[in-house]
């Protein structure tokens, strides 16, 4: 008798599964309500990442092409992967005539970055922050090395470490 109950029980369980999948099929077939995928390249315009999303490290610039990075190297020291390099230059103050160290280039190797966020936490002046862009693909990995301060940019006067 267990032979027959095996068959009926088996068929019943199979039909139970088919009910669930069938339900989703007909809902999606007629209304597309349960579809969970996004049509990605088409929704680029409306796609908004969350505020805290860690896409890449960017440096904030104001309209006068000024930033807050003093080049203190806190981020360079905090980075576990060596993804950040700070290059100095000598800058002569026109008023006093004294030469002073200033930031030349804030180099960011995106290819080495693990998006851990320690640099941004370490930054005493909040000069660097998270950018939301996640389209990092390039055909050449040298393009992954970025200079974060824009050419000709200056430090906002009065920014202290």
């Amino acid at each position: 008798m267990s032979y027959l109950s095996d068959i009926t029980g088996g068929i019943k369980s199979l039909l139970g599964g088919m009910t669930v999948t069938g339900k989703y099929f007909f809902i999606n077939f007629f209304t597309r309500k349960e579809v969970i995928t996004e049509e990605y390249p088409d929704n680029m315009d409306t796609l908004k990442m969350y505020d805290r999303f860690r896409g890449e490290v960017v440096m904030w610039h104001n309209e006068n092409n000024e930033h807050k990075c003093t080049g203190c190297s806190s981020c360079e020291r905090a980075c576990p992967n060596g993804a950040i390099e700070i290059i100095w230059k000598k800058e002569v103050n026109p008023e006093t005539g004294k030469a002073k160290r200033a930031i030349d280039k804030h180099i960011y190797h995106l290819g080495m970055c693990t998006m851990c966020g320690l640099c941004i936490e370490a930054c005493p002046t909040d000069a660097i922050e998270w950018g939301q862009d996640f389209h990092h693909t390039t055909y050449d990995r040298t393009q992954l090395t970025k200079v974060l301060n824009k050419p000709g940019s200056k430090v906002i006067s009065g920014t202290k470490e």
Partner: peptide, 10 residues
């Protein structure tokens, strides 16, 4: 297409 509708896809 049918597989996609079963699997909540398009």
């Amino acid at each position: 297409r049918i597989a996609a509708f079963f699997q909540l896809r398009l």
